[in-house]
Structures are given as C-alpha cells and as structure tokens.
Amino acid sequence: MNNLAFDIAHLLAGGLVLISLMLLYQDRLTSLLNAFALQAFVLSLSVAWQAYVQNAPHLYLTAGIALSVKAVIIPLALRRIIRRLGIHREIETAINVGPTMLAGLGLIALSMVVVLRVTSEADMLAREDLAFALSVVLLGLLMMVTRRNAVSQVVGFMSLENGLILAATGAKGMPFVVEISVAFSVLIAFIVIGIFLFRIRERFDSVDLEAMDEFRGEAH
C-alpha cells in the first residue's frame, strides 16, 4: 500500500511537470489554456490522492477548489476574454521553442539536485514532491519570462501557483487556511489581471506588453 501510494503520488506530480513542459511550447493561446486546464485537473487529482494517503479530508476541499476554479472557471473565463479581444488565433513566443525546452529541462535537473541534496533527511514522498513542485514553480516562472502576451503571463503565474499548491499539499499538516487564501489570491489576481487586460486593450489596441514599452518610449 505504502509503495503504491508513493508511486501514484510520484506519477501525478511527474504529470504536473510534464504538463508544465507542454505549456512551454504551446504557441496558440487556446491550446495554452487547454493545457493549463489539464494541469489544474492533474493537480486536483494529485491533491485528492494526497488527501486519501494522508487521511486529511480537508485536502479534498482543496482538490475541489483546484478542479472547479482552476480547471474549469478560469480557463473558460480566459477563453472568453481572448475571444472578446480577438486574439485567439495569434501565435507568439519571445524565445524559440527549442532553447526554451532545453532551459526547462535544465531547470528540472537543477531543482532535482537542489531538493534531493538539501532534504536528505526528510521522508521520500515529501522529497520527491518538493522536487517536482520546485520544477513546476521554475517552469512557470520561465514561462512568464519568455512570453510576451499578458494572457500567457497570467497562465504562467497560475501554473507557478499550481507548483506551490503541490508543495503545500505534499507536506503533511499544512493548515487549511493557507490553501484557501492562496487559492483566493490567485482568483483575485486573475480578476485584476482580467480587468487590466481590458484596460490595456482599450488604450493600446493590443495585449502585447511590448506596446506598453513603446508607449514609454523604451522600445528596443
């Protein structure tokens, strides 16, 4: 049982990392949102499995929130936004896919080395979990750095936050309040950024952040 628990948790966390990598090379916004919804779905599975393994029923609630908000509501809302903005067909990348993927692989290796070295005394499940979570966080950050479009940056940020939730649920005894607040903060960030997008759009006729740089007279 114990071994099986470990393997399944490992599988789900690894799936999260894999989907993070998938996020990196999506160059259409619609497919990016689909991939993100998939990641949120896997996250909710992973959290639910942790709830079962750790015998912590409150984690089911976290899983539910992840499933409903992140896998359904936010992707749907973002999809509406990009349709209303008329940018759902656009293709954008700041850096080519190849180097980005290589950088992503490097980051995963780095987080493995760091976590496995630093936490040599913790139990196996938590260590693996932390390593994967750190990978997801770094990949989310990488995505925010490489993308130009505000929508993909939002997605990158939320994917980063998925990594945080993975880490939080992997560690036993994380207070429930924290998870709720994290989830809600993301929701609020999403709302704010959504409003922001419309504002940017109204003013510059584009959601491309470079347009703002040009407006400041600092285009390169």
Binding site: L107, L110, S111, L138, L141, V145, M212
Partner: peptide, 18 residues
C-alpha cells in the same frame, strides 16, 4: 520592462539555486 524585472528575479533565483 516588466519582463526584464521578471527575468532579473528569475535569474537571481536560478543563480541562488545553483
């Protein structure tokens, strides 16, 4: 630009992890 600030943060984080 916002992206450069993010890149700075990202670079610093990766450097510290290294």
């Amino acid at each position: 630009t916002i992206r450069r600030y993010l890149s700075l943060v990202f670079g610093a984080l990766v450097f510290l992890l290294l």
